[in-house]
């Protein structure tokens, strides 16, 4: 049986059922997937338990999803989040 995958910024990330997006990314060697709002510094998993809101990313077009809480699903489209993830709304 082939392992399920989700896409991350165009590449395919394998995961085991029950694994979080953050765990799968880390297992695949991806350590950061967000840039901070002001200084643009890289962020990935920090607390890993849903508290710190550091590991935010975009899932299926929706920003500010916590990678550590979101269960990986086959075919999910995950992408890096720049700043607030709502740059399109800026006026």
């Amino acid at each position: 049986m082939s392992q399920p995958h989700f896409s991350f910024d165009g590449s395919q990330i394998p995961f085991r059922p029950g694994q979080s997006v953050g765990a799968a990314l880390t297992a695949a060697g991806v350590r950061s997937w967000r840039s901070t709002r002001r200084a643009g510094r890289p962020r990935g998993l920090f607390c890993g338990i849903g508290v710190c809101f550091d590991c935010l990313l975009v899932v299926d077009g929706r920003p500010n999803e916590r990678a550590c809480l979101r269960l990986a699903e086959p075919g999910m489209e995950v992408s890096t989040q720049e700043g607030t993830g709502h740059g399109d709304l800026e006026v």
């Binding site: 709002r37 607030t84 709502h86 740059g87």
Partner: peptide, 9 residues
Amino acid sequence: TEPLPRVVR
């Protein structure tokens, strides 16, 4: 709301 860019002036 969650943090946003400048959306309301």
